[in-house]
Simulated scan of single mutants.
Amino acid sequence: MPMLDPADRSQTGLDTEARSTGRDPVQPKTLLEESWRDFVWAEVWTRPGLPLRARYLVAMATAATCNLEDGQIDDFVRGALTNKELTLAELREAALHLAVYAGWGNGGRLDRAVTRVAEELGLPPAEVPPIRGEAWDPQERNDEGHAEFDKVMLFPPGPPKTPYLQGINNFVFGEMWRRRGLDEPSRRWITLVGVCESGAEIPIRSHIHAAMASGNCQPDEMLEFVLQYGTHAGWPKASRMQMVILEMIDKVAKGLPWHAPKA
C-alpha cells in the first residue's frame, strides 16, 4: 500500500476545513491544531460513510455538549448553511431537539451559535411554527404523544404515571418529535449525541436500536457516527457506543428487540 505524502495530507486538511466551515483555513501553530488539520479534517471529514448533513448535525451537537469553543460551534453551523446541508429553520429545530436530549443549556449554546452565524451571513429570521398554535384537549395531547412514541421508538409506551413520564409523553413526543420542520433521520443523529453524553443505559440501548430498526440510520452510518462523535467527545465515550452499536446491529438483523425478553 503506498504511503501518504504528509504535505498532501496537510493540504487536504486545509482544503476540507475551508469547504466545511465556510471560512478561510487557519494554519496550525501547535501540535493539537495540527491534529485537527491532519486527522479531523483530512481523514474524518473526508470519509464517505456518513452523509455530510448527518456529519454536521453530529459535530455541532457534540461541540455544544462537550465544551468546544463557541467559534468551533459557529464553524459547523456556518458550514452547514453555506453548503446548503441545513436551512436556518432546520437549525432552529435542531437546537430545540438538542435541548430535550442534552439539556436546555446545551441547546441554548447551539441556538446562540445559529443566531451569531445568521447575523454574520445577513440572513433574515427563520419562519418556524410555534410549539403549539392552538388550544388542545389534554387527552388528545396524551394520545398524540403515545402514537408518536410508538412510531419513533418502535414499542408502545407505558402509562405516564410521574411528572417526568408526563413530560416525555406530552412534550417530547406529543409536541417536539411531531414537529415536521426537521426530518426524522436528522432528529435521530441529535438524539444519539444526547443519549451518548448521558451515559444512561436504557436511552442509549433503546435509541440506538430504534435508529436502525426504523431504517432512519444504516449500520455502516452508525459505525461512522462513532468515529465522528469520538473526535469531539473522546475515544473512551465512543468506545461505549461502539460496543452497543455492534450489539444492536446484530439484534436488528435478527429482528430482536433492544432488551432481553422478560422471563
Rank of each mutant, 00 (worst) to 15 (best):
S20F: 10
R180W: 00
V244Q: 11
K251T: 00
E140F: 14
D15F: 09
E43P: 04
V244E: 15
F225Q: 08
F173N: 03
P185M: 07
V77G: 05
K262C: 00
L246G: 00
K84H: 13
A253E: 10
A89E: 02
G79C: 10
E144Y: 12
G181N: 02
N83T: 11
R132Q: 11
M241A: 12
P159L: 14
P261L: 00
T191C: 13
G199T: 03
R141W: 13
T30N: 05
E247R: 09
A89K: 03
R240F: 14
G107I: 14
S239E: 03
A95K: 04
A7R: 07
A233G: 08
P6K: 14
D183Y: 05
R78K: 11
A64M: 00
I168K: 04
F171V: 02
R78S: 00
W136T: 07
G79I: 04
R9L: 13
P125G: 07
R187A: 07
K237V: 00
F76R: 12
M248A: 06
N170K: 12
G49D: 12
R9W: 03
V128E: 03
Q228T: 01
I131Y: 04
A59C: 15
A238T: 00
L123F: 09
M3C: 13
L57D: 06
V193Y: 00
P138I: 08
L81S: 04
Q242Y: 09
Q242V: 00
G108F: 13
M1Y: 15
G79D: 04
F149N: 01
P2A: 15
N106L: 13
L96K: 04
S35D: 10
L154E: 01
T65N: 10
H232Y: 15
Q218P: 11
K262D: 10
V172Y: 01
L52H: 05
V26Q: 14
G22H: 02
T46L: 12
W258V: 05
T46V: 02
T46S: 03
M241Y: 11
W136E: 08
M60W: 09
P185I: 10
R180Q: 01
T12M: 11
G199A: 03
D38N: 12
D24M: 08
L32T: 14
Q242D: 13
T115G: 07
E120S: 11
P203K: 01
P160N: 05
V100W: 09
R141Q: 15
R187E: 03
G215A: 06
P28L: 12
D74L: 08
A260V: 08
R179P: 09
P130E: 06
R205L: 13
P160S: 02
P219R: 01
F149I: 05
A135N: 09
D70Y: 06
W136Q: 08
L86F: 13
V40R: 08
S20L: 07
A200Q: 11
K29A: 12
L256P: 03
P159F: 14
G255I: 03
G79K: 05
S20N: 03
N170P: 02
K254N: 07
G199N: 02
R141E: 14
R23N: 08
S10Q: 15
Q27C: 03
T46Y: 05
A61M: 12
R9H: 07
T82C: 01
P129Y: 04
L81A: 06
V114R: 15
S35C: 15
E184M: 13
W136C: 08
C66T: 07
G181E: 01
E17Q: 15
A94F: 11
V244T: 14
D24R: 15
E224V: 01
N216W: 04
D250V: 03
A59W: 10
K161G: 05
P51M: 06
